[in-house]
């Protein structure tokens, strides 16, 4: 049973190909201006890894993410919320809360033992506290995303960042830089401010252990550390790539749907 999940997000496209509940190919590419282009390119890459030559060999495809409605070779589309819940659960069945922080959204998803979404909270339009936010701050600090993420770069006394708005926070950071604040403290302050924003959503949903971080921002170790502190809980490290969680979830759904159709 060969299935695929495609997650066309705002910043990157992800694809996962599975055979009988095992990942045989996966890929992540930058978004290419059009969901179909992004999907074609990421699927090609994942197929190459899986040793496939034609999309036709894949028996069922489910899409998710912002571009989910535009991919014609998919049989179904599901929300990122359902797919991240499912994918994170597939990676680590003991999870009950998934914090997904992507390019322009962040979500706190509460899942059942079976990996089904019980409750969720999601930011509104504003991209504060998401990948876009980190990108603009990294630009202002000239330290790159790696600079913000690296655990060694987290200062001991996080600078106070009062604004949630990306634009305002960036100018606040510029002020701090020019006041001579240490880079490490600014970086720690930025990660702490995002962690606090997420903690509000977690409160709305009701945080239940175990907790994991998915989405592109799961690669930010400084953020994971700040979240653990603010939420007073451990953030589980997933065995696979947490940025792929949405695509994995979509692939698992594709498999389930194929089985349901067959029976």
């Amino acid at each position: 049973m060969l299935v695929a999940g495609i997650d066309i997000g705002s910043a990157t496209g992800k694809a996962v190909i599975m055979t009988d509940d095992e990942i045989v190919g996966s890929a992540i590419v930058q978004s290419q201006g059009h969901p179909v282009k992004t999907a074609d390119s990421v699927v090609d890459k994942a197929m190459a890894e899986a040793g496939l030559s034609s999309v036709g060999e894949i028996e069922n495809v489910v899409t998710t993410g912002y571009g989910r409605l535009k991919i014609e070779f998919a049989s179904d589309n599901l929300s990122e919320i359902a797919c991240h819940g499912k994918g994170a659960h597939w990676l680590e069945p003991s999870l009950r809360t998934v914090i997904d922080i992507g390019g322009q959204d962040c979500k706190v998803i509460s899942i059942s033992e079976a990996g089904k979404v019980v409750e969720f909270a999601m930011n509104d339009r504003c991209a504060a506290g998401t990948g876009r936010f980190f990108e603009s701050i990294a630009r202002a600090l000239c330290c790159g995303l790696e600079g913000i993420s690296s655990i060694e770069n987290q200062g001991d006394s996080p600078a106070k960042i009062t604004h949630q708005c990306t634009v305002f926070a960036e100018s606040e950071v510029v002020t701090l830089v020019n006041e001579g604040e240490e880079l490490g403290n600014i970086i720690a302050g930025i990660n702490l401010s995002v962690a606090k924003r997420v903690s509000g959503m977690a409160r709305r949903v009701g945080l239940v252990d175990n907790v994991a971080l998915t989405g592109g921002c799961s690669k930010n170790q400084g953020l994971a550390a700040a979240l653990a502190k603010v939420l007073r809980t451990d953030i589980q490290m997933l065995s696979g790539d947490p940025q792929l969680a949405g695509a994995i979830g979509a692939a698992v759904f594709a498999g389930e749907k194929l089985l349901a159709r067959a029976s």
């Binding site: 599901l78 089904k116 979404v117 999601m122 349901a260």
Partner: peptide, 14 residues
């Protein structure tokens, strides 16, 4: 996304 996820939580993902 919000509304789709709400429908999915009520009615499942089938």
């Amino acid at each position: 996304t919000r509304v789709q996820a709400f429908v999915e939580t009520m009615k499942g993902t089938d």
